[in-house]
Design a binder for these strands. Structure first.
Length: 558
RNA sequence: GCGCCCAUAGCUCAGCGGAUAGAGCGCUAGGUUGCGGACCUAGAGGUCGGGGGUUCGAGUCCCUCUGGGCGCGCCA
């Protein structure tokens, strides 16, 4: 890689300069070598001189000139110069770009991937919707972010496990209400005139499940002791809801490695053992009959109840046990993806992880901001209990997986996201996902055209690429060459939205190339055609791999 | 009151402490026979919410103020 090569040149120059006495410094600063925004400056630019100024007691400009004098020759480098406040700019021969095209084609599906993660084990938990309603669009955002981030981390060489935490614990009042609502709907379907309870789940989906059950079990299913019937409905409701969630997520392109049951944490005694451990370490105290966690000792703003006065452990107790369980499974890093309404839980969860002796830096919580749904400019209010949620399934059916995922990933998770269903459905230039997919389809069309014209796909390893010298060709190569670093940045910053931006940039650069450089055309000499075919293939690989990280398809035609 | 997030072009938003702050939409003016016009070219449009500070260098980091979103249960 050319970047590494330039970095080594600078390091060599530093050491040479120090040895000759021209420059004095103790530690080599962590400098950058990057393509400058303004390409007229060159291919790479190093900021070392500015960083060294104080330490070396010289002006950046002066240091840069000293470094250039002490820099070894390199056959790839045609020019080194000092500019701006002391940037060292490098111009390289086009050969290095042509090498990149070969490398990309050789790597194929694995282009952009690396082993930086070194098998470091990461558990990433997201969606984790309660089993009393369908997956809605807020879950969808967390899902898209979590799944894409997982794909990027895998591509960066991490060992990633995707996990869904099912809040199916016995002490959940919400689950009981849900089951009761279902029972009422069931009876209503049987013709009984019963009003829904005041805190009922009003959603249509409850009726759907009741109908499904009625078909399967018949009218006698409501006969029996009240709590027995209730338990029966609860068991069914939970299983049905979980199955539906699983299906919705699968249709969205998300498959979890682990569906972790909260209930099992209680049944196995892990929750109680966890509480005992905290007790033994004096991290809890009793007050007003309840057991409190001293989370303020670790930066929380209040202590939290961990066991209620009635003896039931709270959600925090189970969640603490859950995080302990994850850490005990050997993960080096836990990433939780939560909605904005949960931001207040970060401090207490980290406190608990600290108290258990793991070090809260092992837990990262990624909070994404709210999703607002619009339909033709009008905001749709959502409430699960009222039953007017916009479900992921609704949107998937209208807008399709690709547009839905792309839209949910376009914005930084730190900012609110307005999702306009009509816009996502539009097959027009207002819809960025098509812009990107169109570029890929165009590439495929070129490759088809080449085949029709009897131009064989070149062997990129040996194909002469020296004809690729025009501005548009060079720009395209430089842009697609950014993928590996882009993946690392997006993964390490936990910022999958960067990849949507990158996809648009690649598509944009490609469309310009396409406009100006005919690949298969009577006016294009055969050798140049073949060289361009190699480049086009590299662009296809780049787009395909980048879209794959977003979970968006790369269509061959549209 | 406390906590988290946000404030960048008319609108929606990018922007890993680096050089002249970008894109899409919208607007204006263009692109004869087309490797797919779901595309391309050019132009207009900015005191990066205000004020301090750190730095060789701040849209980016720190403090503060203003405005907005969300959250502050012995619910999960």
């Amino acid at each position: 890689m050319a970047k590494l090569r330039v970095t080594h040149l600078v390091q060599k120059a530093l050491l040479n300069a120090r040895e000759s006495g021209a420059l004095s410094f103790d530690t080599m600063p962590d400098f950058s070598v990057d393509p400058p925004k303004n390409t007229s400056f060159g291919d790479f630019s190093a900021n070392i001189a500015m960083l060294l100024a104080k330490q070396a007691g010289k002006k950046p400009f002066e240091i840069a000139n000293i470094l250039i004098k002490h820099m070894p020759e390199d056959r790839l480098v045609t020019e080194v110069s000092v500019a701006g406040g002391g940037f060292i700019n490098f111009k390289l021969k086009p050969d290095w770009l042509h090498e990149l095209v070969r490398e990309i084609c050789a790597a194929g599906c694995s282009y952009g991937h690396s082993q930086i993660g070194n098998g470091h084990k990461i558990n990433i938990e997201f969606v984790s919707a309660n089993p009393n309603g369908p997956i809605h669009m807020a879950h969808g955002r967390g899902g898209a972010i979590g799944d894409s981030l997982a794909r990027m981390l895998k591509a960066a060489g991490y060992d990633v496990t995707c996990e869904f935490y099912v809040n199916d614990a016995l002490n959940s009042l919400q689950m009981q209400n849900f089951a009761d609502s279902l029972l009422v709907r069931y009876k209503q379907l049987l013709g009984q005139e019963i009003a829904m309870p005041s805190d009922a789940y009003e959603g249509e989906y409850v009726i759907d499940i009741a109908r499904e059950m009625l078909q399967q079990f018949g009218p006698d299913y409501v006969i029996g002791a009240a709590d027995e019937v209730s338990a029966r409905f609860r068991t069914y409701a939970e299983a049905a809801m979980k199955a539906q969630q699983k299906q919705d997520l699968a249709d969205f392109g998300i498959e979890f490695d682990v569906w972790f049951s909260e209930k099992e944490l209680h049944d196995s005694g892990e929750v109680m053992r966890c509480i005992e451990q905290l007790k033994a370490a004096n991290f809890v105290y009793e007050n007003e009959g309840a057991l409190w966690l001293r989370s303020t000792q670790y930066g929380d703003d209040k202590d939290r109840v961990i066991v209620r006065a009635n003896g039931q452990p709270t959600y925090i107790a189970a969640d603490t046990a859950y995080h302990k369980n994850k850490l005990d499974r050997g993960f080096d890093t836990l990433i939780d993806i939560w909605g904005p309404d949960h931001h207040g839980y970060v401090a207490r969860t980290k406190a608990a992880v600290d108290m258990l002796g793991y070090g809260s830096d092992k837990l990262e919580v990624l909070i994404h901001q709210i999703v607002r749904i619009f339909k033709g400019g009008e905001m749709v209010r959502m409430s699960k209990r009222a039953g007017n949620v916009v479900t992921l399934r609704d949107v998937l059916e209208e807008a399709g997986r690709d547009a839905t995922r792309f839209f949910l990933l376009m914005r930084s998770s730190d900012t609110g996201l307005d999702f306009d269903i009509e816009l996502a459905t539009k097959k027009s230039n207002e819809n960025p996902v098509y812009y990107v997919q169109y570029a890929h389809a165009r590439i495929c069309s070129i490759l088809r055209k080449a085949a029709e014209e009897g131009i064989p796909l070149p062997d990129v390893a040996t194909q002469d690429l020296s004809g690729l010298t025009s501005e548009h060709e060079i720009n395209l190569i430089k842009k697609i060459a950014e993928l590996p670093e882009e993946i690392l940045t997006a993964a390490s910053q936990r910022a999958p939205h960067r990849m949507t931006q990158y996809c648009r940039e690649v598509a944009d650069t490609f469309h310009r190339f396409y406009q100006n450089c005919k690949v298969v055309h009577p006016d294009t000499p055969l050798e140049l055609s073949k060289a361009r075919l190699a480049l086009v293939q590299a662009a296809q690989i780049t787009l395909h791999n980048a879209l794959d990280l977003l979970g968006v398809s790369a269509p061959e035609s549209m």
